[in-house]
């Protein structure tokens, strides 16, 4: 199976808007390494259905599926937008504003 068919779920946390990922335990983590990956469309459907319930109950906002790959056993996002969402702004050096995120 090509690696870019693996997906995971991301959203923004309601309380502070932070980027979060749906974990295998049905929790939301700020670390992409905690995400539950879906290797097939059926699992992806199940995960997004679960995430939408969490959106309805108000934990998170705007959940969606995005593509990931695995590097050294860890999930990494594909595409510039998701890379930036995962790592934070690429430009936070001059005012030292960006909190590092794993």
């Amino acid at each position: 199976m090509p690696t870019n068919s693996i997906q995971a779920i991301t959203a923004n946390r309601l309380s502070d808007g932070m980027v979060v990922y749906l974990t295998a335990q049905g929790q939301w983590s700020e670390r992409i390494r905690d995400c539950q990956s879906a290797d097939d469309p059926g699992m992806a459907e199940a995960l997004i259905a679960q995430a939408r319930q969490h959106a309805e109950s108000g934990q998170i906002v705007g959940p969606y599926l995005f593509k990931i790959a695995r590097q050294d056993g860890h999930p990494v996002p594909l595409g510039r937008r998701e890379i930036i969402r995962t790592t934070g702004p690429s430009v936070g050096t001059d005012l030292n504003r960006s909190k590092p995120r794993e």
Binding site: N12, D16, V19, G62, R81, R85
Partner: peptide, 28 residues
């Protein structure tokens, strides 16, 4: 009301936008 779940995001979004509050890539 949004935090308590009384308002959904669809209901809350126009209210927050009227007060200049967006949800962007990483945060509000």
């Amino acid at each position: 009301r949004r935090v308590s779940g009384e308002l959904s995001e669809d209901e809350f979004k126009p209210l927050r936008l009227m007060n200049g509050l967006y949800l962007q890539l990483h945060a509000y």
